[in-house]
Amino acid sequence: MKKLYVYLCLLATLAMPAFAGISVTSPTNGAQVQSSVHYVATAQSPACAKGVASIGIFTAPYKLAYSVPGSKLDTYLTLSPGTYNTVIQEWDNCGWSASVPITITVGSGGTVGSGATAGVFSNLQSKAWWNGYALLPTSYNICASCTPSGPLATWSTQQGNKTYALSSGGSMKFSLGGTMPFADILWNVKFTKYLPDPKAVPNFHNFTYDVWFFGTNLEISQALEFDINQFINGKSFIWGHECRIASGHEWDTWDNVHMHWVKSGIPCHPVSNAWNHLVIQAQRTSNNQLIFKSITLNGKFSALNRYDNPTPTTWYGMTINYQMDGNYKQQPYSVYLDNLNFSYY
């Protein structure tokens, strides 16, 4: 009787996960994809009355690249070229799980229209390419006389931070302070000279800004800004995205022509004392319009699909910005960035 009991228990343990399931709509198994991979999946576990606890993506055995509470997953992962035997797995609140294998091949230097080569700059939080600038009210132009020691605006960075980190190399700490209310600090990375062919910048039309960020008290930030910039053929394309925190908890996008922020109606509620995952997708059309495509924050996908027009410029190149805005007291605060990747094609 004891053997029968053990057998029945084992049979139940093996059988119950069969009631759980995952429906994957993107990517398809065997797909060839660009470096920014869109994962969309829904999990169910009808045999568990408590429902699905979480769903995640493994990019290699024992390497959980992303997970989100609940039964729905909609996010982008930025992956280097190669073939990945990824697995989407769900866990329910009864101790059972189910998984679906999805094999993908990420393009390796392939040509993507007009001679453009797909690429990704990975782990930018560890690069020595960052530049910092103060932007003071009311003009918010770059302050040429300002220095990191202030006093009107102060700023600093620290790489390899292990206090709050996701990657083995550590995060990059960005800090803001000073005495002038509403002063901002802008940091950027200029990619052009690091491209295999610096003359290829005009060939790139699709961009993904993928970053994780952490702050112990994000509520005192007036706003956090994440921008993608392209300057080609006398035209300036700025895909500016601002998460207004102290000023309203909403995403805004930049109006290039009229030089002001446009409300999106999309909520922005990053979580303090937790890692927040942000993915921004942008595009330049064949007739040189900007498209603000989408924002995904902590697994919540929001379509923008806002069109804009470029403005004149004498600059050339491709950059990203990260900006921290001070509040009405210019209270000092820090934000940590990790697993920061920028992909283009």
Rank of each mutant, 00 (worst) to 15 (best):
K3T: 14
Y7R: 15
L10D: 05
M16Y: 13
P17F: 03
I22T: 06
I22M: 02
S23I: 14
S23Q: 15
P27E: 10
T28E: 15
A31W: 08
S35I: 03
V37S: 01
H38A: 11
A41R: 03
T42H: 13
A47N: 10
G51E: 10
L64Q: 10
S67C: 04
S71I: 07
Y76R: 13
G82I: 00
W91Q: 11
D92T: 03
P101C: 08
A118N: 15
F121A: 09
K127E: 09
N131D: 12
G132M: 03
S149W: 11
L152T: 14
A153H: 05
T154Y: 04
T154F: 02
Q158N: 13
G160E: 11
N161W: 04
S167R: 00
G177K: 00
I185L: 04
T208P: 00
Y209L: 06
G215E: 00
I220H: 02
S221N: 08
L224S: 13
D227M: 06
G234A: 04
D252E: 11
D252H: 09
T253C: 03
S264T: 14
I266C: 05
I266T: 06
V271G: 01
N273H: 12
L278P: 01
Q281W: 03
Q281R: 15
A282V: 07
Q283L: 14
T285K: 11
I291T: 11
F292G: 05
K293F: 03
I295S: 06
T296Q: 06
T296V: 10
G299N: 08
K300V: 15
S302M: 04
A303H: 13
Y307R: 01
P310R: 00
P312H: 08
T313H: 05
T313G: 03
W315E: 15
N321W: 12
Q323E: 15
N339M: 10
F342P: 01
